[in-house]
Amino acid sequence: MPYSGPHEDRLAIRELLETYADAVTRLDADAWAATWAEDAEWSLPDYPEFGTTHGRAAIRAMWVSAMEHFPGIMFEAWPGSIEVSGDSAKVLSYTAEVYDQDGMTVRDRGRYEDICVKVDGTWLFQSRSFRNIHRQKAPKGL
């Protein structure tokens, strides 16, 4: 079933996705890093230059470096499924990003496969694996 488990947990996980997206758009590294568990793992198979990163501090450092290439980003995220089982959840989410790069406006759409965990009453990302679904480039301003 694409949505299962207690409503309050599913709402908190939606808010986790929204907090993540808001932090990306504001380029707020501290707020963004706070969405991850201390021992988290972030995998970017479509971006071999980034690969897989382990631990909140290393994930934050990699993100700060990567975001230098995505000025003026607008990032949106929404769930496709949330399956809560106790203090963990399997989540599938989709993203839409718009940013300017090298004189072009880039629109990316992607998909995250996530494992979230509840730590001291707060839902966090334990693991995220991102795949790009579609990329569109157009001259800036179109």
Rank of each mutant, 00 (worst) to 15 (best):
Val119Met: 04
Met67Lys: 08
Asn132Gly: 10
Met74Thr: 14
Leu92Val: 14
Ala21Tyr: 04
Arg111Met: 13
Tyr99His: 11
Pro71Asp: 06
Ser127His: 08
Trp78Asp: 14
Val91Asn: 00
Tyr47Val: 11
Val64Trp: 00
Gln101His: 14
Val119Ile: 14
Val64Ile: 11
Ala34Met: 04
Glu41Ile: 03
Val117Tyr: 02
Gln101Pro: 03
Thr35Pro: 05
Glu97Asp: 13
Thr25Ala: 04
Pro79Cys: 14
Arg128Phe: 07
Thr52Leu: 04
Gly51Gln: 01
Glu15Asp: 15
Arg107Tyr: 10
His69Thr: 15
Ala96Arg: 12
Arg56His: 04
Asp108Gly: 08
Ser129Met: 10
Gly103Val: 11
Tyr94Gln: 11
Arg131Asp: 02
Thr52Phe: 08
Asp39Asn: 09
Ile82Trp: 06
Ala89Asp: 01
Tyr94Trp: 13
Val64Glu: 10
Lys118Val: 08
Trp63Arg: 13
His54Arg: 13
Trp42Pro: 00
Ile59Phe: 04
Pro48Met: 05
Tyr112Arg: 01
Arg26His: 09
Ala33Glu: 07
Arg131Gly: 03
Asp46Leu: 02
Ile59Arg: 00
Lys90His: 14
Ala31Tyr: 02
Pro48Ala: 06
Arg107Thr: 13
Glu113Arg: 11
Ala77Lys: 00
Trp32Thr: 01
Trp42Cys: 09
Ala57Arg: 10
Asp120Tyr: 03
Trp42Asn: 02
Asp30Gln: 12
Lys118Met: 07
Thr19Tyr: 03
Met74Glu: 15
Leu92Tyr: 06
Ser93Met: 11
Arg56Asn: 08
Asp100Gln: 13
Asp28Gly: 07
Asp46Glu: 06
Ala34His: 05
Arg131Tyr: 12
Gly51Tyr: 03
Arg109Asp: 07
Ala40Trp: 00
Arg56Lys: 14
Tyr99Met: 10
Gly103Trp: 06
Thr52Glu: 02
Trp36Glu: 03
Val84Tyr: 11
Val84Cys: 07
Glu68Arg: 15
Thr25Ser: 12
Thr35Leu: 04
Asp102His: 10
Asp120Asn: 15
Met74Leu: 15
Glu113Phe: 05
